[in-house]
């Protein structure tokens, strides 16, 4: 027997969550497909479904100084249309799914799904996004890289809800995003690459790079990024081989019905090389 609960406040939701096993339902673009049955038959969720998409506490979308705080139930469309939202946050969202999906899919949902191909994840990893996990009696903040532990796996406890995504301040004059998918729109990523960089004159002051759909979780390699720190951007090509080795070891893509591991690996490295050679300089 399926139960459903539509709480009026986050607090009520957290109480619910502390009492019984629940499936948190934000936008539903993934869950409604996962539990669908035959047309005309109500999707087969087991246990209690806890609707949180409407909760005002999860709808925040604002900037505190230069830190972006995004409520977990903000839809992709809401984020794209938010006042002053910077390009480095917009880019991966623009090519995600289709308009009608972007209208229901939430940022929190994309994170908690923890799909290796989740389109927002490389960006969130690269920007060191932090996640607020709240339970009835507690709140904790974790780095996204610590939150997702494997395909579909997170450290979210049974009594917790992901409430907010915090994007630390960062001015990123250079933003690069490349997605290879099954077609040009409304497609699931075969491999993605997201990078941002900041310069001090010609020197790289900070650089972040992340790969999606190329391993069980997003691949980011701080050691490799550190190698580029303070390097003159025109010297970057000299580091290409070293960096490629770093990443080649970290990428662990799989064969599936949408692509091959070989394609994902090679394409990821080709995009990396292109970014370092052409886009960064």
């Amino acid at each position: 027997m399926v139960n459903a609960c539509r709480p009026l406040s986050l607090e009520e939701a957290l109480v619910m969550r502390s009492r019984e096993a629940t499936t948190v339902f934000a936008g539903g673009s993934d869950l409604m497909v996962r539990y669908r049955q035959w047309s005309g038959v109500t999707p087969d969720f087991s246990g209690t479904v806890l609707f949180v998409g409407h909760l005002p506490e999860l709808q925040r979308l604002d900037r505190e100084k230069d830190t972006w705080k995004i409520g977990a139930a903000c839809t992709i469309t809401q984020i794209l249309q938010a006042q002053g939202i910077p390009d480095h946050l917009k880019l991966p969202l623009l090519s995600m799914a289709s308009p009608s999906i972007r209208n229901v899919a939430t940022l929190g949902g994309n994170i908690c799904n923890a799909s290796p191909a989740g389109d927002t994840l490389p960006m969130l990893y690269a920007l060191d996004a932090r996640l607020t996990l709240q339970s009835r009696d507690n709140a904790r903040t974790v780095a996204i890289a610590d939150f997702i532990t494997g395909p579909g796996k997170t450290i979210l406890a049974a009594d917790e809800i992901l409430t907010e995504i915090t994007i630390p301040p960062g001015d990123w004059p250079r933003v690069y995003y490349k997605k290879a998918g099954t077609r040009r729109a409304n497609s699931i990523s075969k491999v993605t690459f997201y990078a941002v960089a900041r310069f001090d004159g010609d020197r790289i002051a900070d650089i972040r790079m992340a790969f999606g759909a190329a391993a069980p979780t997003v691949v980011r390699n701080p050691a490799a990024e550190a190698l580029l720190q303070n390097i003159d951007k025109n010297q970057v090509p000299a580091w290409l081989e070293t960096l490629t080795t770093h990443y080649a070891d970290a990428l662990r893509p799989i064969d599936d019905l949408r692509s091959t591991g070989k394609y994902r690996q090679q394409t990821a490295l080709r995009i990396l090389a292109h970014f370092l050679r052409r886009e960064l300089a």
């Binding site: 539903g28 673009s29 409604m32 497909v33 308009p99 009608s100 999906i101 209208n103 229901v104």
Partner: peptide, 8 residues
């Protein structure tokens, strides 16, 4: 715009 198949 939303797809009615995804909206409970």
């Amino acid at each position: 715009l939303m797809n009615a198949c995804l909206v409970p």
